[in-house]
Write a protein that binds this DNA or RNA. Sequence first.
DNA 1: ACACTTGTACTAATGTTATAGTACAATCAA
DNA 2: TTGATTGTACTATAACATTAGTACAAGTGT
Lengths: 136, 136
Amino acid sequence: MKPLFHINPTDPMPIYAQLERAIRFAITTGGLRIGDRLPTVRQLAVDLRINANTVAKVYADLEQAGVVETRRGVGTFVRETNGTFARQVRKDEDLRPLAEHFFADAAALGFTVEEALAFLITHFAQARTHGSGTER
Amino acid sequence: MKPLFHINPTDPMPIYAQLERAIRFAITTGGLRIGDRLPTVRQLAVDLRINANTVAKVYADLEQAGVVETRRGVGTFVRETNGTFARQVRKDEDLRPLAEHFFADAAALGFTVEEALAFLITHFAQARTHGSGTER
DNA sequence: ACACTTGTACTAATGTTATAGTACAATCAA
DNA sequence: TTGATTGTACTATAACATTAGTACAAGTGT
């Protein structure tokens, strides 16, 4: 089966940032639910082929942020007080760098902004009927 | 007037990567057009409050990638042979992983697919009507 | 020739990121 | 208690990113 998270070691984005983003994404999209246990520090390090210290720091950061709860000797779990993001100030402008990233990458493939945007609208407009189906 | 590029020094993404992306994005969206001259290394460093070396490296990378052309003593210009990539087989489906990446990042910030898409449409729908005016 | 601008090439210093390895603390099960 | 599991803490090392400063190379204009 496919691993829950992905890391691209060639991406200029630091590994810890990629992993934190991946975990937050999994929680946001239901790949991980409240109470779910995350892989152990050591196991995830092996799976992603990164250092255990890096994983441990990400877990610590997420703990600090209130996203997960860690119990020594037991594991790390998705926290219930998961209003996590709803609590923080979500400014629309935070989306801009992400959008720039997308359009820049699309341009590298030869797509114009219009073409890329058209693709998104066509394929993701009613993404609600997606129902990613496979739950754990 | 607003600067052409933005850098967020607190973003875990390295500054050089942010800048390279921003420049590619500006070219893609028409903020910079073929033949347009980029700010000088030193000037851009001052504007963005980053080091000139960092800017120089980004320009060198973009030169290497064929995105810009540099002429010593004159400046750095957006390259015409910018269709570089347009020449290759462009399949719409190639955009899917980029789109998923974007929505994943947006979700990590707490945005739904609809919200992220709405932002794109609002801010990038008619990016063509930029008309920066100043030609060389 | 001269001054000026622009990109390029260095050195050096500092901070961050990632790795390897070891050890310890807390929890659980037998 | 013993052993296994899990998160945490620490040292040390290497690589990368950023900055500051200086100097040089190539082009333009007077």
